[in-house]
Computed example of a mutant assay.
Amino acid sequence: MSNFEMLLADNPIVGAIRNDEDLDLICKSSIKIVFVLYGSILSIKKINETLKENDKIVFIHLDMLEGLKSDQKGIEFIKEVINPYGIISTKGMTLKYASNLGMLTIQRIFMLDTLSFDTGIKSVHTFSPDAVEVLPGIAAKAIETLGKEITQPIIAGGLIKSKKDAIAALNAGAKAISTSCSELWEFEEKSL
């Protein structure tokens, strides 16, 4: 088991933040791992610093960051100037650039139908991210099937709004769940 997989096992609830209000809430929470799903080239450094000051492990979703291309130079900028723990992207080349710079990578894939499932698996095999975030996270059957096809830890994200949703995703084989539902941020691992 990799260090990152152990980190997910110890912290199965990942906070996903979409605005400054979420940032304030998550800083007051016991959540350890945070997915940043907003920001711009002008604000991301301060968002990252605020989270780090509050002892959070930060992953920035580059596809949602305004004003910065996710090309090689953009990734170099993120690494050198922002320095998060890792990045999230749906784009394989973005993951490759980040991995080449020693950053942890999470590939976000959408399981909408058989074609997207097959394409997602092929992409994971091609770009070898450190983890895979599958959406929607409430699709237990897709999580279970994906777990048979890849070796990376699975993080279930999207539409997880209740403890029941979180438990179903974890029971299907996800190592963790990511949620913007702040009510779930305070659940202890033992209560899941």
Score class of each variant (00 low, 15 high):
residue 101 L to E: 10
residue 75 I to W: 00
residue 128 S to K: 06
residue 70 S to G: 12
residue 101 L to T: 10
residue 132 V to W: 14
residue 158 G to K: 02
residue 154 I to M: 12
residue 148 K to D: 07
residue 109 I to Q: 09
residue 112 L to H: 11
residue 123 S to H: 02
residue 91 K to L: 15
residue 62 L to V: 14
residue 88 I to M: 14
residue 106 I to E: 10
residue 73 K to L: 04
residue 141 K to L: 02
residue 76 E to P: 06
residue 157 G to C: 10
residue 102 G to D: 08
residue 122 K to P: 00
residue 126 T to W: 05
residue 149 E to R: 08
residue 132 V to Q: 11
residue 151 T to F: 04
residue 82 I to Q: 05
residue 140 A to K: 05
residue 144 E to T: 03
residue 63 D to N: 08
residue 80 E to N: 07
residue 119 T to V: 06
residue 106 I to A: 02
residue 147 G to R: 07
residue 63 D to Q: 09
residue 122 K to A: 13
residue 130 D to Y: 02
residue 81 V to I: 11
residue 133 E to Y: 01
residue 122 K to L: 14
residue 110 F to P: 04
residue 135 L to W: 09
residue 103 M to I: 11
residue 137 G to W: 03
residue 87 I to K: 00
residue 89 S to W: 13
residue 139 A to Y: 15
residue 63 D to C: 08
residue 99 S to Y: 03
residue 124 V to R: 01
residue 136 P to I: 14
residue 135 L to C: 05
residue 143 I to F: 01
residue 140 A to T: 07
residue 65 L to A: 08
residue 129 P to R: 00
residue 133 E to P: 01
residue 141 K to T: 08
residue 128 S to M: 00
residue 111 M to Y: 15
residue 114 T to A: 09
residue 118 D to L: 07
residue 106 I to F: 10
residue 68 L to V: 11
residue 84 P to S: 14
residue 85 Y to W: 11
residue 91 K to W: 15
residue 99 S to A: 11
residue 104 L to T: 03
residue 109 I to E: 12
residue 88 I to L: 12
residue 114 T to V: 03
residue 83 N to L: 02
residue 108 R to I: 15
residue 121 I to S: 10
residue 147 G to H: 09
residue 99 S to W: 03
residue 89 S to K: 01
residue 95 L to W: 06
residue 99 S to C: 06
residue 83 N to D: 06
residue 108 R to V: 12
residue 131 A to E: 01
residue 72 Q to C: 06
residue 131 A to F: 02
residue 151 T to S: 06
residue 141 K to F: 03
residue 78 I to R: 00
residue 72 Q to F: 05
residue 95 L to I: 07
residue 81 V to L: 07
residue 90 T to P: 15
residue 73 K to G: 04
residue 109 I to W: 09
residue 95 L to N: 12
residue 71 D to L: 14
residue 107 Q to M: 07
residue 91 K to R: 11
residue 95 L to A: 02
residue 119 T to L: 05
residue 137 G to I: 04
residue 142 A to W: 04
residue 123 S to K: 03
residue 67 G to Q: 04
residue 84 P to V: 14
residue 142 A to C: 03
residue 86 G to D: 15
residue 134 V to M: 10
residue 134 V to C: 12
residue 104 L to A: 06
residue 139 A to Q: 12
residue 109 I to N: 10
residue 85 Y to G: 06
residue 79 K to H: 09
residue 150 I to G: 11
residue 149 E to Q: 14
residue 89 S to Y: 10
residue 89 S to R: 00
residue 69 K to T: 11
residue 150 I to M: 12
residue 138 I to P: 01
residue 110 F to A: 10
residue 148 K to C: 03
residue 114 T to W: 09
residue 85 Y to L: 15
residue 61 H to E: 07
residue 67 G to H: 11
residue 145 T to Y: 01
residue 137 G to H: 07
residue 70 S to P: 01
residue 76 E to M: 02
residue 116 S to K: 05
residue 126 T to F: 06
residue 86 G to H: 11
residue 150 I to V: 13
